[in-house]
């Protein structure tokens, strides 16, 4: 740094900030800007899911539950309030059926709203 003055050292940066493009997002009035890779809500391609339970086994937060009633009848339930959004389920799934999309989970005054049934698989081929 060439400038040696020690009083008001921040002044040039203040002026620069004043005329710079504003750093603040316009979030509530405009939609949020999320990265493409952002790990948000979980979605499942129901037709690909075979109910193997690998995602349930590897989930570190026990946020997925598989309710099984027979070989081809199962429900995959996701608890958003427990989920760590780590993406381990995406990695563990061998069918590429599960994905975390670029949309953050919404707040809710009621915890039951966070329980989402991702897949309801009725016995189709039986």
């Amino acid at each position: 740094m060439s400038r040696r003055s020690s009083l008001a050292h921040l002044l040039p940066e203040l002026v620069r900030t004043l005329f710079a493009r504003r750093a603040t997002v316009r979030f509530p009035s405009e939609p949020p800007v999320l990265a493409e890779a952002y790990r948000g809500r979980g979605v499942v391609h129901a037709e690909l899911c075979v109910g193997c339970g690998l995602c349930v086994r590897d989930c570190p937060a026990f946020a997925l539950e598989l309710e099984r009633e027979g070989r081809h009848r199962f429900r995959l339930v996701h608890f958003e309030d427990r989920c760590a959004y780590c993406g381990q389920c995406v990695d563990s799934c061998r069918q590429d059926a599960i994905a975390l999309v670029s949309e953050f989970p919404r707040a809710s005054p009621c915890r039951t709203a966070f329980t989402r049934v991702l897949v309801t698989h009725e016995a189709s081929e039986e």
Binding site: V25, F27, A84, S108
Partner: peptide
């Protein structure tokens, strides 16, 4: 928190994004 206090709104996420926090407070 709801084991101790009455909670008015829950914001999920790990961690919750700043946008999610703002959205949650506005919703409240």
């Amino acid at each position: 928190i709801d084991q101790v206090l009455p909670v008015d709104i829950y914001i999920p996420g790990c961690p919750s994004r700043p946008e999610a926090i703002i959205e949650g407070i506005l919703q409240l």
